[in-house]
Structures are given as C-alpha cells and as structure tokens.
Design a protein around this nucleic acid. Structure first.
Lengths: 338, 338
DNA sequence: ATCTAATTTTAGATCGATCTAATTGTAGAA
DNA sequence: TTCTACAATTAGATCGATCTAAAATTAGAT
C-alpha cells in the first residue's frame, strides 16, 4: 500500500506538501496541487486515517449512540445529524445499543478509544450519569438527544413530550370527545410517564377527571397494542378517542379496531406521536404529533458543533414543540343518534 | 491523555509489557498482569486505537454497507453479522447508503481509508463491479449479502428469491387458489423481477397461465401498496389470493383490504416475504416466507471470517431457502356458495 | 538591482501504539 | 554446579501521517 512518500516522489515535491493537498489546504499553489493529485491517482494512493488521527488533535469523527436503529425516528435523527456534520467533514459512527446497558458501555468505551471529537447519545433507560464520567474527565463534548438522564451536565436536544401529549389530547377534546383513553408503551417508562402527565394536563384543563379515563400500558409491538386497544374498547361505555404513546402503538391500535370491525377516524378517533414516515402513508393516514426527528438531529448536530468550538459554553437545551398533523384518524365523536 | 508509557512507569514494567496486557496476551505472567491492570485504572488509561491500527496489520474493524437501515431486515442482518464477528473482537461499522450511489462510494472510500479488515455489502441497485476495484486491488475481502451485482468475484450470502416466491405461490395454489395476483415493489427492481419469475414458475407448474394473473408494481410504502391492492382487487373477477413482494407491501395490502371492508385471510389470502419481526405481530398475523435475515448475517460473517483467514479460497455462495411461516392471512378461497 | 513582504515549500520531530529479536529469569535434568 | 528449555520481559525500530519553524521562492516597491 502506498504512502505520502510514494506520492511525493512521483510528484517531485515533499511529503508535507502532499499532506497539505490531502487536506485541501489553500497554502499550496494551484499548479502544484494538480501535479500532486495526478500523482495520487497514478500510484493509487489511499489516505491512512489512523496515521492522521494519531498525529492530529481532531479525528473528524463523531459517535451517535441510539437505543434502537430499527425505530424510524432514530434513522430520521441520524439523517438530521448528518445534515449538519457531514458538510463539516465529520463522519458519524452509529452504534445501536438495543436497550442494553452492556452494549452501551462497550460502545462508549470503543468510541473513546477511537478518539471521537464528540458524542451524541440517547441513553438506555436507567443509565446513570456516571457512565459518562470518562468523557467529562477527558473533555470530549457530549450531547444528549431525545432522552435525558438526570444530573448529567450536557447539552440536550429533544421535544417537550408533556406539552405534545397535552396538545394531542386537546385536539381530541376540541373535536368534542369527552371520554378518551391513553394507550401507553413500556419501551421507555420515563417518556411514557411524561406523555401520560401531558394527557392528564389536558383532561384536567377541561375540568374532567383524569382518573376516570381508561389507561392501559402494553409492550411495544403491533400485537400488544392491538390487544390492549380491543380490551380498552370492549366495555359498556367505551372511550370515543384514544391517545397513543407513539405511531407504532397507534398502528397496532388501528389493527385492533379493524379486527373489531371498527373504522379508525369514524367509529373511534386515534392520535399518534412522532410522525414517522409511515404515518402519512398509513390507511387511513394517521393523525399524529410530529416531533420532526430530523430537525432534532440537526439541533443535536448544531449543539455539538458549538460545543466543539468552545467547551466552556454554558449548558444549552433545545426543546422543540411537537406539532399537530391532522389527518384522517381523528374526527368528532359519533353522536348517540347515528 | 495518558499513554502506555505512563502506565508502564506506574506499574514498573516496560511499554511492551503493557501493550501485551492490553491485547490479553498469554505471554505475560498473572502477577504482572494484575499489577499493570491496576496501574491502568490508576492513571485513567484509554487505549488509542489509531496508534494501534497504524502499526499493526489488522484493525479489527469490519464495514457493513446497507441500503436502508430503517428496513428491519437490515437491522436483523446486522445482528447476525455481530453474532459472528463481535466474539472475534471485530467491531462492525455500519453505513446507510439510502440507495444513493454517491453516498455509497463515499462510504466505500472512507472505510478503505480506515483500513477495515473486510467489508460486507448490499449494493445500491445498479452498482457496477468497478465500484469495488480498489478493494480487489488492495486485497481487502468483500462479501456480498442479499443483493448481488454482476461479474463481481466475491463470496455471497443470501436467499434463493426465485424459489422462495415459487414456494409462496405454491402455498396459495395448494390451498386451492387458482386466480392469484402479484404485488411487486420498485425498491430493488432486480429482486422484484426474480421474485416475479418464481411466482410464474409456480403458476406454470400447475398448468395455469402466468400471463392471466394480475400483476401490479408500486412504490415501497404502505399507501402505495394499499392503493395498488385496492386496484387489483376492485375488478369483476378479483384474485382470491395475493403474493406480495415483501412484508411491508403485504402490510399495505392488508390496509387496502380493510378499507374495502375485506378481511385478509377470510375474503382474500395474502402472503408476504422476509418475515420481519412485525409480521408475527401483525393483525391478523401475517403468513410469509421467512428469509431469516439474522441467519444470513451470520453466514456473511462466517464467509468473511474464512476469507480473512485465507484470501485465496475459491469463491463461495451460501444461498439459503426461504421457509414458509403459515399464519392467519392465508386460507382456502371462499367458495361461490358461501 | 535591491530590499521587503507575502507566498509556497520543506526538513525533521512527533503522535502512541506494535513488532522483532534479543535478553533476562526460572525450573528441571544431567 | 552447569546446562538446557522454556517462560517472561524488554530495547529500539517502525507504522504514515501532521506539526512547527525555518527556508526557498515569488512579487511588488523603491
């Protein structure tokens, strides 16, 4: 495998000049640059990042640690992070922890070993801030995204889950629903709890009793959500609308309703959360609260960029609001007469 | 940041010994190992992979290039690859090309620059074998997975799509269906074409005319599949069963049927392909051809391991068969009498 | 032609590990 | 005691880039 020296020899310049060309420096004269670039092609030169990383203080590498790559919000998030960081020449390395503490600490360690310039993390539920002491100690910037762990002195990009869930519920209330259920998920208990609080906020703001609203929590799968929904709906006085923890749960709920011969948006209203790509393509198109995950990814990228420039900045949070995407699964409740 | 030298000083041994401890060498005595490990903790040592990679011939790093991380079959695939490679101490770096040639060549280059020990790729549709000449030239093992490009002299792990689609269709034929539709997808035209050929194989093997079976190809979304399905079914003599390109298309088809007030598995039979996790959790649970993506990932990992040991092995393909998962969306066709 | 300032190029040290080959220590056999 | 294996440790060179500070070149002004 060829090195800078080989290129330098062929181009008739020094190693240092070739190195400058590699990095696109403006110091080198146009004529020389062309000469060097031709030589690089001629000898089949491949840049050696390990060598570069060893010497220089920056690796132009950023770690992204997320709990479940199969969840579309995280692929959107990734896209947003790349939107900001790729143009700056940073490569984003993804690690999927699968909600496992063990995998998470393994990846945290590995990324430290490869000397990432920064880290964006959505920590596994229950992670202690201590898991990140190495990073703090060494002074590598860490940004939290979507999920937040307690007492961790890091920037944060995410959404206001409580307010979002409140707005979702208010949407149903505004349509005239007075008996509304909440279908929760067990993936991230803390997020689920906060969204439930938002649900209660909305209900109470209309002088209704939150305690009288049916609530059910299920595992994070279509089947579990379908079963839970059938259960919550198969009672003497069923709710006329359901607020779902997220879109995936709402999809499961749809399937449950279909199984009972009910049509979402006609017989029972349904609202999701996240607005993943499939929501719009769902049948009927799903009303949901958009968190604009890609935008949140961009925020995280920006926060990281700022902190990499200046590690001493005061801690900063970018908490955006979920926005209502009114589609076809919500409508006024059926009146008794119908 | 501390180095081997700092650790060596504190432990009272040489740099070389510390290095051996890092790599878990059996050469170093138990007593010394403990002494060194204590010293590592004391000085807060963090291994520097760039330095190691520069000197040693192996980086213990493997690249995985896939077209769409949001597609569950690829996260299953990743899991399978890790099953094999993580125990060997190899880290798997994922890159999502998003079906973009440009992103793909960017990642191929970057992984070359980081000197991966090997590469597992599912190439963007239409990629030429030339995209990989650098790897061939340099002698880095490349394994193809799921998708295959022409004339590329690489090992391959995947499934027999043609036979799988044939078996899917035969399942419907065995149940008594004689008028069966094919709902294709435009994501990967080559795979779609091969699955369609399998469909034809089955139909013809029963002395039916493949040309008389309704075929429709749609974009790869729930909505598109729902629309396509409604279209294919809303004719005077609709098919009694549908073979879908994959599970996602089958999901969309389900939604289309529900919209028409039809129940999958009762009014119309439906079979998918892939057996992603959601298939079993679908309502009704989806009959599908399982490709066991995780197992394919393991195959790819094994092929890579073998080739890393010996680059001169003859080219090897591991083509597995999709297996029928009979669930609730397929049943004998409704007779006219019913 | 000479000097100054700006531009472009370069030599040599350096990053932090691993590798090779040689050295030291230790146990058992003669 | 001396020799032979074998186990454990190490010095010094090395990987291929970047950095620093100095040198060479060029352009512009006098």
């Amino acid at each position: 495998m060829t090195t800078l020296i080989d290129v330098a020899k062929v181009a008739g310049v020094s190693r240092a000049t070739v190195s400058l060309v590699c990095r696109g420096s403006s110091l080198v004269a146009e004529k020389t640059r062309l000469k060097v670039e031709r030589a690089m092609v001629e000898v089949g030169y491949v840049y050696n990042r390990s060598a570069a990383n060893l010497r220089s203080s920056l690796t132009n590498t950023v770690g992204l640690i997320i709990p479940d790559i199969a969840n579309p919000i995280y692929s959107d998030l990734l896209t947003g992070v790349e939107d900001v960081l790729n143009p700056l020449g940073k490569a984003v390395f993804i690690a999927d922890t699968n909600e496992s503490q063990e995998r998470q600490s393994h990846f945290l360690q590995r990324m430290l070993e490869m000397r990432v310039d920064g880290l964006i993390v959505s920590m596994v539920a229950g992670t202690k801030s201590a898991a990140l002491t190495q990073y703090i100690h060494i002074g590598v910037p860490v940004i939290q995204v979507l999920r937040m762990i307690e007492d961790a002195p890091f920037d944060y990009a995410g959404i206001n889950n409580r307010l979002g869930a409140r707005r979702a519920t208010e949407h149903l209330l505004d349509l005239g629903h007075r008996h509304i259920g909440f279908v929760g998920s067990a993936t991230s208990p803390s997020v689920n709890q906060v969204r439930y609080l938002g649900f209660c906020d909305a209900v109470r703001s209309r002088n209704l009793s939150a305690e009288s609203m049916p609530v059910i929590t299920c595992k994070h799968s279509f089947a579990a959500a379908a079963v839970a929904t059938k259960q919550i709906v198969s009672v003497p006085a069923p709710p006329t609308g359901l607020v779902c923890y997220n879109d995936l749960i709402a999809f499961g709920a749809t399937l449950g309703l279909y199984e009972l011969g009910l049509v979402p948006g006609q017989d029972i209203s349904l609202i999701g959360f996240d607005d993943i790509e499939a929501a719009e393509n769902w049948r009927p198109p799903l009303t949901t609260m958009s968190i604009e995950a890609r935008q949140i990814g961009r925020h995280a990228g920006t926060l990281l960029t700022n902190r990499m420039k200046n590690i001493d900045l005061p801690i900063c949070s970018m908490v955006s609001e979920a926005i209502l995407k009114k589609r076809d699964t919500t409508a006024p409740p059926k009146t008794k007469a119908q």
